[in-house]
Design a binder for these strands. Structure first.
Lengths: 240, 240
DNA sequence: CGATCAGTTGAAGGCTATCAAAGACTGTGG
DNA sequence: CCACAGTCTTTGATAGCCTTCAACTGATCG
């Protein structure tokens, strides 16, 4: 049954057909569990060890010398690291597990990409598109941080998370899991923890969202979309 | 003499040796002049027409439906558009000329990239590295917009511009040309025009910079670097 | 039960935006 | 040469968003 497919395949197959050989290759990858706070990517070396996130959340982070830090990008189940077709600068950022995570070592996938293996054409193309979509989220972050208010930023991020989790089947009618602290969301949005908390309260008071511990539900996505004000999807075909 | 080399070659050769065939190919490209305000990239089509900027400034811009707009990246002489090895999401942003510009149509270069032409290996590699560096500037922008104050953002951008213009020989002891209005800089930094003007004044009062119409000089780069607080270079070899 | 952590709320202040108007600079036409 | 309009820049005053500091709640855990 379809439910048995790992989240990595669910995600990659949204970008195109995967051959049986592709699916076999991905299913062979060996999962590994790592605790929250561990570094998934050590950036000192020249080559980033590629991996795919199967469960849990991680983040690409950049720290300033004085202690400030910006979460540049949130990594959700199904997202991959180091599988871009050509060197991609985002892969040089430190990656930190925000929750306990399960990752698979994706070295064989990268080998297929580098060899431009003809029998894995679908897989290679899917990885290329996945990397492209991640770049779109980076661009969205620039506009979000540069032009939008706290309320708008939060609405935009919630919609982005909803979209991304939905395509790997992690959204239910009761919302989706948000397994990180408000501190993490604040750092992703360039806001203080206190102000994020207030903005969340405002959305709750308006009935736009509902919060339970570790979980969020978008009750009025139309209100959020109107506030977010610019496209949150990273469709492969569109210009964005 | 070396001064006869076009800025496109100056820029690309900072990323590695170019063969005589590479130089010949780039020198063959035909320059075209376009007025300020013209769109260098129409994003509706699937393929971005690749080009290299020889003189003048341009910007990758994203507009919000309500009129706000963010300058995502400034393009300086020597920068290229659409010459990444693999599709790069930044190339889907609208590109607008901020000043009158001279560009060359770089279709032959892209052909060499796509063909992975062995006789243009140096050129292909240089383009790859140039695209990589542009991505680093996008990442820098995220941290700048998310974590830094107006003064810090401005210091950081000025240092970045200095670095980038220096490597194509456009920095003199008397500073470098800044051929755009404060409005443009403000939109790149996510600040209001008025506040940018005040921040510039503050830097002038401190003797950190000197402004003449269309030109800026960094008098105390150490002060600016201390304020900017995180690396502004996009060195190919470093992790950033 | 004390301790720790995530979340919440209040109060005060600072950084930045907005509104408004006045000075520079440029190019044009009389 | 000057008047004039237009754009760019600067400055003042005011308001608002957001941050910081601080204290308090509630939950989890040894």
């Amino acid at each position: 049954m379809a439910g048995a497919r790992p989240v990595s395949l669910l995600r990659l197959s949204t970008y195109g057909e995967l051959s049986p050989a592709d699916e076999w290759l991905v299913k062979q990858l060996k999962p590994r569990t790592m605790p929250a706070g561990s570094r998934l990517s050590a950036l000192e070396s020249g080559d980033v060890p590629p991996c795919i996130l199967l469960s849990g959340w991680a983040a690409r982070v950049r720290a300033l010398p004085d202690g400030r830090r910006q979460i540049v990008h949130l990594l959700l189940p199904g997202d991959s690291i180091g599988l871009g077709a050509s060197p991609w600068a985002g892969d040089r950022l430190a990656v930190v597990a925000l929750t306990p995570v399960i990752v698979v070592d994706a070295e064989p996938v990268r080998d297929a990409i580098r060899a431009a293996s003809p029998e894995h054409g679908g897989l290679v193309e899917a990885c290329r598109r996945a990397a492209w979509c991640e770049q779109v989220y980076f661009l969205n972050a620039i506009v979000r941080l540069g032009q939008q208010t706290a309320y708008e930023r939060l609405a935009h991020l919630l919609l982005e998370l909803h979209t991304r989790l939905d395509c790997v089947g992690l959204v239910s009618p009761k919302g989706f899991q948000l397994p990180v602290t408000q501190d993490v969301v604040a750092h992703a949005l360039g806001l203080s923890l206190v102000h994020l908390s207030r903005t969340l309260r405002q959305m709750r008071n308006e009935g736009a969202i509902a919060l339970q511990p570790g979980r969020v539900q978008l009750l009025k996505p139309d209100i959020l979309a109107a506030a977010a004000n610019f496209p949150h999807t990273a469709s492969w075909s569109e210009a964005g």
